[in-house]
Design a protein around this nucleic acid. Structure first.
Length: 198
DNA sequence: ATAGCGATTGACT
DNA sequence: GTCAATCGCTATA
């Protein structure tokens, strides 16, 4: 559950689509180039913070920092299922079908009223908060990330299979799995990474 | 100081 | 399916 209290109004919903962005070695990441810059600094900061950036001259993107301080890593929230403050979300986004209020990363930030002021804010302390929720009943689909220049693709996009609130997009190759299995895979990957580092 | 570009969207063919 | 809008960040001079 993702919740915003921008403008003193609570808005939010269930996260239904995400993409992972790593640090060095992930050419699609803002942290791809070695070193901290003014923009990507928050990605290197402590986990549990919001990394918000501005792109294409119009759109804000909300990421959740995931890795320990000193290691770049964040999850881009690409879509949510509106559940809280939907009337305010309609006011911010314009009259649209419910499933088009936040079915894209730029739309998520707009619907939640977020902007660069939220960059670096601590989840639950600033205007953005994330709460645990029951695991989804739908299978989780895994595909390549959207919108990256060729050669930057990695299968790091995760979304709820068949959910109407997921962004439209060229999916490409895709597989589905249970959430518990994906978590097992992630843990195995972490173990492999630690072993390699050692 | 500044050219080039982008983790997109919305309108249009 | 194509395409323009739009501006902060990054890299280069």
């Amino acid at each position: 559950m993702l919740v915003s209290r921008a403008d003193g109004v609570l808005t939010g919903g269930r996260i239904v689509e995400t993409e992972a962005y790593l640090g060095q070695g992930d050419p699609g990441s803002h942290a791809a180039t070695r070193g901290i810059t003014k923009r990507n600094a928050v990605m290197y900061g402590p986990p549990g913070c919001a990394y918000v950036y501005f792109t294409y001259g119009n759109h804000h993107m909300l990421n959740l920092v995931t890795e320990e301080e000193g290691t770049a890593g964040a999850v881009l929230v690409r879509a949510i299922e509106p559940q809280l403050g939907t009337d305010e979300m309609v006011r911010r986004r314009g009259a649209r079908p419910m499933h088009e209020l936040a079915n894209g990363p730029g739309k998520v930030a707009q619907a939640l009223g977020l902007d660069l002021r939220d960059n670096g804010s601590v989840l639950g302390v600033g205007r953005v908060a994330v709460f645990d929720a029951p695991p989804p009943s739908e299978p989780v689909a895994v595909s390549g990330r959207i919108g990256l220049t060729a050669g930057h693709e990695r299968t790091l996009r995760f979304y709820l299979e068949g959910d109407e609130h997921v962004s439209r997009g060229r999916t490409g190759p895709r597989r589905t799995a249970r959430l518990t299995d994906l978590k097992d895979e992630a843990r195995a990957g972490d173990a492999r990474r630690w072993k390699d580092d050692a």
